[in-house]
C-alpha cells in the first residue's frame, strides 16, 4: 500500500510541475496551448538520451530537458505572436499533431513507437536517488522550486505584464508593453518547466514512448489547470490531485466493474468540467467575480 501511495504521490508531483508550468501560459499569460505534452515529451526524451548516452545525473538531465524544451518552444511562440484566441488553439493543435508524428518516426532520438527502454537509475551529484521515497522527495523539492519561481515572477513586474496582456493585449501595448517579447519569454519559461517535468517522468518510469505525449495528455493537463483554477498557485495542484486521484478512487468502488472505470471516469471529467464552467468558471481554487 505504501509503495502504491508513493507511486501516486510521485506521479502527482510530476504532473503538479507540468500543470503549474501550463498555468504560467494559460492562467497568467492567456496563451491557450494544447501542445504542452510536446514539451513534456521533449524534456523526457532529452533527459533519457543524456542519461543513456552520458551520465544519469538528474541535475544535468533537468538542465538539458529544460533547455531543449525551452529552445524548441519557439516553434510555439512564433504562432503565438501572430495569432490569438481560438486561432492559437488551432495552431497549437497542429504543433501537437506534428510532434506526435515526429516522436513516432524519429527513431534515433525517441526510439519510435517502441520508445526508449532501459533508462538508467537516477543519481544526483553522484548519489543514488532512485529509491521511490527518495525520488518522491526530489520531485517535491523540484515542485517547490518551480512554485517559488512562478510566485516570485508573477508577483513582480513580469507577472503584471503577462496578466495585463491576458486581460487586454491592446491596452497593454498602449502602455508600452512589448507584447511579442513578453509572450515569447512566458512560452519559453513555461515549456522549459514542462521539460523538467518530462525529465523526472522519464527517470521515474525508466521508459518513455510517444503514448505519454499525445493530445489526450495535453488535454488532461489543461483540464487539471482549468478545473483547479487558473492564475493561482494552488489551483493546478488541486486539479492534479482531483484528476489523478479520481481513477484511483474509482477503482476502490466495488459497484463499478474494473472494465468500466475508464468510461465512468470520462463521464465524471466531462460533467465536472461542464458544471465548473457554469458555476465556478474561475476553477475550484480561483476567485469568482465579486469575491474579494
Amino acid at each position: 500500500m505504501i509503495a502504491y501511495l508513493t507511486n501516486l504521490a510521485t506521479l502527482a508531483t510530476i504532473f503538479g510541475i507540468l500543470a503549474a508550468s501550463l498555468n504560467l501560459l494559460i492562467g497568467y499569460a492567456g496563451i491557450f496551448s494544447i501542445a504542452h505534452a510536446v514539451f513534456f515529451g521533449l524534456g523526457a526524451y532529452a533527459g533519457a538520451q543524456l542519461a543513456m548516452l552520458l551520465v544519469p545525473d538528474l541535475l544535468l538531465a533537468c538542465l538539458a530537458g529544460g533547455l531543449v524544451a525551452g529552445a524548441l518552444s519557439l516553434c510555439l511562440a512564433l504562432p503565438a505572436l501572430r495569432v490569438r484566441g481560438e486561432y492559437f488553439v488551432a495552431a497549437s493543435l497542429g504543433l501537437q499533431m506534428m510532434a506526435v508524428t515526429v516522436f513516432s518516426e524519429a527513431h534515433a532520438f525517441t526510439g519510435g513507437h517502441g520508445g526508449l527502454v532501459g533508462i538508467p537509475l537516477a543519481s544526483l551529484l553522484g548519489f543514488d536517488i532512485s529509491a521511490p521515497p527518495t525520488f518522491l522527495v526530489v520531485c517535491l523539492v523540484v515542485l517547490a522550486l518551480v512554485l517559488v519561481v512562478i510566485r516570485v515572477l508573477m508577483r513582480g513586474s513580469f507577472g503584471r505584464s503577462l496578466m495585463a496582456i491576458r486581460d487586454s493585449e491592446s491596452a497593454a501595448e498602449a502602455f508600452g508593453k512589448n507584447v511579442a517579447r513578453l509572450k515569447t519569454l512566458a512560452v519559453v519559461l513555461g515549456c522549459a518547466m514542462a521539460g523538467v517535468a518530462g525529465v523526472l517522468f522519464a527517470f521515474y518510469m525508466a521508459f518513455v514512448n510517444v503514448e505519454s505525449f499525445t493530445l489526450e495528455q495535453s488535454i488532461l493537463v489543461m483540464a487539471m489547470v482549468i478545473i483547479g483554477g487558473t492564475a493561482t498557485l494552488i489551483g493546478p495542484l488541486v486539479g492534479v490531485l482531483l484528476l489523478l486521484l479520481l481513477p484511483a478512487g474509482l477503482s476502490f468502488l466495488p459497484f463499478i466493474p474494473p472494465t468500466e472505470i475508464g468510461s465512468v471516469q470520462q463521464l465524471i471529467y466531462g460533467l465536472a468540467m461542464a458544471l465548473l464552467m457554469i458555476f465556478r468558471p474561475a476553477g475550484l481554487a480561483g476567485r469568482s467575480a465579486g469575491q474579494r
Binding site: L153, G156, S157, F158, R160, S161, M163, A164, A172, F175, G176, K177, N178, R181, L182, L185
Partner: peptide, 9 residues
Amino acid sequence: AALEPAPWL
C-alpha cells in the same frame, strides 16, 4: 502595470 514597460523578468 502601466508604469513597467521593460519586457524582461
